[in-house]
Design a protein around this nucleic acid. Sequence first.
DNA 1: ACATTACATTCCTATATAGGAATATGTCAA
DNA 2: TTGACATATTCCTATATAGGAATGTAATGT
Lengths: 126, 126
Amino acid sequence: MFLIMARAATTSDPFNAVAEPRRRQILTFLAVGERQVGEIVAAIGLDQPSVSKHLGVLREVGLVHVRRNGRHRMYRTNAEAIRPLHEWTGSFERHWRHQLNRIKERAEEQMRSRSAAGLNASKEKP
Amino acid sequence: MFLIMARAATTSDPFNAVAEPRRRQILTFLAVGERQVGEIVAAIGLDQPSVSKHLGVLREVGLVHVRRNGRHRMYRTNAEAIRPLHEWTGSFERHWRHQLNRIKERAEEQMRSRSAAGLNASKEKP
DNA sequence: ACATTACATTCCTATATAGGAATATGTCAA
DNA sequence: TTGACATATTCCTATATAGGAATGTAATGT
């Protein structure tokens, strides 16, 4: 079917879908509650067709849910679909905590060696 | 400078950089400790130039750090750079918790109404 | 100096957008 | 029915890849 893969489709998974800043904006805007497309257009400051297309992508990966209400469509963020991203990034949490600890430890060691070298010569003012 | 924006550059921010599955694989592999390129190639099962290019992208957005060691280059994941993604996705945590609560509540209500309707007719076995 | 090893970079191409413009679809109101 | 309004979809185009092939570069051993 595909000979070469230029780049993964934005519709293939949430990771690709949220790579687009406007879509992240939309998700944040729709997280607080249901909004119709016109409201999103007004809030994001993008033309209506573009917003509809972004919503289409978000729909395909399940990041938003839609409900028809007369001639309006009420969109809302499906936070559940964002959870896998949170969990993947969270798998690195212990590593950044570890990195921070190393930095802190080095800083403390510097403090100690400095005060040991200068004794009370570096007290209060340089 | 730019007339139209086809799609944000992968080198522009971590969100775009981790949109690529192979790069997520690499980040996971490099999270446990320093590894040289050859080891990544062997582990990921991608040709060396491709791995080097992915590493180039990850380098540009600060997701990995490099250290030269003779003719080898030791790469490691910079977990700190993943933190913003974790925090952005985490901003939706209260929403998915809320969604889960609503689902749970509805399920419980169904249970109640079912046992109320069937009384003890639905006990143990259907 | 020279071959070898370990990576990085460049060139090429098919593909997947993202935005703009224009058009289609669907719904309500008079 | 006709019209107005709210959204979605289609067509077009410049752009940014991702992978494959080939090449460039730096460091080490002899």
